[in-house]
Simulated scan of single mutants.
Amino acid sequence: MVALSTRKPDPVPAFIPPCLATLADAPPRGDDWVHEIKFDGYRLQAHIADGSVKLLTRTGIDWTARFPSLAKALKSLKVKSAIIDGEAVVEDERGLTSFVKLVEALETGQWSEMIFIGFDLLYLDGVNITSGPLIERKDLLKAVLTRSRSKHLRYSEHMASEGATVLKEACSFGLEGIISKRTDRPYRSGRNSEWLKSKCLQTDEFVIGGYLVSSVEDKAIGALALGTFEQGKLVYVGRVGTGFTHDTARALWKKMQPLKGAASPFSAPLTAVQRRGVVWVEPKLVAQIAYSTRTGDLLLRHAAFKGLREDKPASDVHRPKTRKTKS
């Protein structure tokens, strides 16, 4: 266990850039890994100090005002100071986290439905504990969160079973996937191979480069043209034409109007079919998309819109590289 009482107080960091998981082709094997559910929400870093709470996005933007119920619940924790890495989520009728439901809750102010799931502890009562091993940080976090009776707070349990078995079970329940983490490693900001994500469903962020007007409704979008940045150039990956409600189709159309442009933002010319009917926009908005797979030329198949991501700039959206897991 991390010896907090013997440490001199550490300055409270204003923000700790988050540890990011690398996409893997399969979960890692071995006793030095644990596996957690991959949640479908907004990554938040909770800062608790001097009786106040701040909730920061993964880029350090203050979103406390957007999650008042979570801030209130975190403020009630029996700690002097803490920094907790976690995720803001809303569950659907099956009890699964849903980004679509979270976006709806944020838009309509349904604060009572929101939950903060904590999965790592970075600072506690005057001590920066990022240098300690993950399993010890998690033990401390569990002790902190399980003392709370708030319905808005939850601890992310982990499983030490074989990763492939955990992923199979996760997929059978309709979950997005799992995150595998090395138990003995410190917290390291940035993307690394000590946190690995294995997916059941393909979900990624894509940049919106254009839209098609709805054929059945005025001032609403019918589809989006998507891309990712590769070496500073926007590369076309296909269209998404499902997953929109009437409200989101109209809201997206409204957001697109100030961004309309005369020319395609994509680096390579599109085919006549790909560009037909597309209204070009500046590539500034990021959409979260679920899809089944990619074609040989990397276009999305069976894509569905899940919501806009406001916590990530478009310039940071790149095609993820997959790490090969040793057998």
Results as ranks from 00 to 15, higher is better:
239 R>Q: 14
182 R>Q: 12
289 I>D: 02
101 K>P: 00
186 P>T: 09
46 A>S: 10
92 D>I: 03
185 R>G: 06
188 R>W: 11
122 L>E: 07
273 V>H: 13
16 I>E: 03
100 V>L: 04
220 A>T: 01
212 L>F: 07
310 E>H: 13
258 P>M: 02
167 L>I: 00
244 F>H: 05
221 I>R: 09
128 N>D: 15
171 C>E: 03
300 L>M: 06
154 R>D: 09
57 T>S: 15
76 S>I: 01
308 L>Y: 06
306 K>D: 04
126 G>E: 09
116 F>A: 04
236 Y>E: 05
267 S>A: 15
137 R>K: 11
39 F>M: 13
233 K>Y: 10
163 G>L: 01
54 K>L: 10
74 L>K: 04
114 M>S: 03
148 S>C: 00
237 V>F: 04
217 E>N: 11
186 P>K: 11
91 E>I: 00
150 S>T: 08
34 V>T: 09
266 F>Y: 13
142 K>C: 07
308 L>T: 06
60 G>S: 09
50 D>P: 01
52 S>Q: 13
204 D>F: 10
271 T>W: 08
186 P>L: 08
164 A>Y: 00
186 P>F: 09
56 L>R: 10
150 S>P: 10
263 A>N: 13
128 N>R: 13
263 A>L: 12
53 V>K: 05
261 G>M: 14
41 G>K: 00
62 D>V: 02
147 R>D: 11
293 T>P: 00
49 A>Y: 09
110 Q>N: 14
75 K>W: 01
5 S>Q: 14
173 F>V: 01
326 K>C: 05
196 L>A: 11
41 G>H: 00
70 L>N: 02
176 E>A: 12
274 Q>N: 11
191 R>E: 14
170 A>M: 14
119 F>G: 02
75 K>R: 14
171 C>A: 07
263 A>I: 10
5 S>M: 09
112 S>N: 13
160 A>Y: 05
129 I>D: 08
42 Y>P: 01
229 F>I: 09
92 D>G: 04
293 T>K: 12
166 V>P: 00
225 A>G: 11
275 R>N: 13
101 K>H: 14
315 S>R: 15
85 D>R: 10
188 R>G: 07
263 A>C: 03
293 T>C: 01
7 R>I: 02
88 A>N: 03
236 Y>A: 03
59 T>A: 11
122 L>G: 05
303 A>G: 02
318 H>P: 01
73 A>Y: 06
286 V>C: 08
127 V>Y: 05
154 R>A: 14
82 A>G: 07
150 S>V: 07
103 V>P: 00
151 K>M: 06
176 E>F: 03
294 R>E: 14
181 K>Y: 12
211 Y>F: 15
183 T>Q: 13
118 G>N: 00
111 W>G: 01
281 V>Q: 01
324 K>T: 12
300 L>A: 03
245 T>R: 12
171 C>T: 06
185 R>T: 14
92 D>V: 02
224 L>I: 05
